[in-house]
Design a protein around this nucleic acid. Structure first.
Lengths: 118, 118
DNA sequence: ACTGGTCATCGTAATTTAACGATACCATGT
DNA sequence: ACATGGTATCGTTAAATTACGATGACCAGT
């Protein structure tokens, strides 16, 4: 018997460990407004949207290639990555001298859930 | 034959006219990143999230009752409404001496679609 | 130990955002 | 015509955001 997952386009091979446990947090109530605002604000910049799309496109988690793809200074990209990381939308794991960034499915799901709850 | 729509919780009686035509705009490509950033930035503030929830809760479109519900000055609320309106997430129609605000399903769908495209 | 490449942080300047009070606007009722 | 109540806009201030170059930290090779 093959798993149903075989028919999905491969779990995209995320950097970190299992990030697909169910999210039991509420989608409404105290604190959730601030949570959604933080998530949305993180997406609320064209450069950060581009970064997210870039990470979504390449299943291989890239690092400073982002700097080559986006016409911004390296320090600026680093700041944007920091914002995305703090919001839980992105994850960075050091790999030798460089850092491999990747999407964090849990954060994206959370954002979609809260947006959907509007 | 009854329409499948009869099984939905009523179209919530939006203020304006028909706002449920299909959205044929692309979900990716040039300019879309900026569009998503603008939409997300509009949601990226707790007060604006509260406003959106308030409008979603009361199917009747309220106006300055928002000021009573949110501990901010009237002028500040008005500015937040302006941001939401400019983003296309909210619609305000003057009704006599007051203004009735309501959600704009088209804008919300657009936001959900673009977020889903990440 | 030194060097080179990669990334984060610091310090700074310009721009934007958020919040408020005051004021202007506008439709309605007296 | 005039006052009134509900909104929008203006002007201002404080804080946050964005962007950059320079600097610092870190790991891999030589």
């Amino acid at each position: 018997m093959t798993s149903p997952l075989r028919f999905l386009p491969t779990p995209v091979s995320v950097c970190g460990p299992a990030d697909d446990e169910p999210d039991l947090r509420p989608a409404e109530g105290a604190g959730v407004d601030e949570e959604l605002a933080l998530l949305a604000k993180a997406v609320g910049h064209p450069a950060r949207v581009k970064i997210l799309r870039l990470l979504a496109r390449r299943n291989t988690c890239i690092c400073g290639d982002i700097v080559d793809e986006i016409p911004l200074a390296q320090s600026t990209i680093s700041q944007h990555l920091k914002v995305l990381k703090k919001a839980g939308l992105v994850q960075g794991t050091i790999s030798g001298p460089r850092v491999r960034y990747c999407l964090r499915p849990r954060g994206l799901r959370r954002l979609r859930a809260l947006i959907g709850g509007l």
